[in-house]
Amino acid sequence: MTTTTVDGRIIGQAHYATRALLESLLARSGTTFHQAVALNATADSGGTTERARLTDRMTGTLKTDAETAGAAIDSLVADGLLADAGSRLELTASGRALHDGIRTGTAGITARLYADLPAEDLAAAGRVLTVVTERANAALAAG
């Protein structure tokens, strides 16, 4: 492995290569990336969440608009993967099964990609990327 200076290009290449693997996994179930994020966020909230909170989480995390997030949520409701109870959304049994399958597949991808990397390198990368994300979010908020 060669030593490379980390910059936006390197980070972007890692992101897109990893995302391509995830998209391949999601395609098997006909799930979009935005739908997977919504399912994951709902599962992380104990299987139920407020629609507004889920929309905010998706727009903040994905840097997308509320319309795009809402369309993903609505499609999950229409497909019976989320149940709509007014302002609250809940994973259905089918939604939980799909989420569990995606999570298992993602864990396999992660294990293959990160398996032999030293823990201290992963910790350092995590710290650096967290700071870069915080700075980018601050710059976006400042306009």
Rank of each mutant, 00 (worst) to 15 (best):
L26F: 14
R135V: 15
A138S: 07
L117S: 13
T48I: 06
G30T: 00
A36L: 04
I10K: 11
S24Y: 04
R19E: 15
L98T: 02
D121S: 13
A17F: 10
S94Q: 06
G105P: 02
A41Q: 13
T18C: 07
D44Q: 14
G12K: 05
A78G: 08
L76S: 05
V132I: 11
T31W: 01
I102G: 01
A119N: 12
T68K: 10
R103S: 14
A78I: 03
E50M: 09
L62V: 07
N40T: 11
S75A: 15
L62W: 01
I10R: 13
D116I: 06
T106M: 12
V77L: 06
D74F: 05
V128L: 12
P118I: 04
R9V: 15
T68A: 15
G105W: 00
A119G: 13
L113D: 11
T130W: 01
E120S: 11
R96W: 00
A72T: 09
E120L: 08
E23N: 08
T18Q: 09
T48D: 03
T110S: 13
G70A: 06
G108P: 03
L81W: 02
T42M: 07
D79L: 08
I73R: 01
R51S: 12
A115W: 09
L82P: 10
R88Y: 07
L129R: 06
A72P: 05
A20L: 10
T64R: 03
G80I: 03
E90I: 01
A17E: 14
A43C: 03
E23G: 04
A52Y: 04
A38N: 05
R28H: 12
R9W: 08
A27C: 10
A119H: 11
T4R: 09
F33A: 11
D84V: 01
R53K: 13
G108S: 07
A43W: 02
G46M: 03
N40R: 11
V132T: 11
G30D: 06
Q13F: 10
A27K: 11
T31R: 03
E67Q: 12
G47E: 02
A83C: 05
T18G: 15
T55C: 11
L113R: 15
F33N: 09
M58L: 15
T55E: 10
L26W: 07
R96P: 00
T68H: 11
H99C: 00
D65I: 05
A43I: 04
A93I: 04
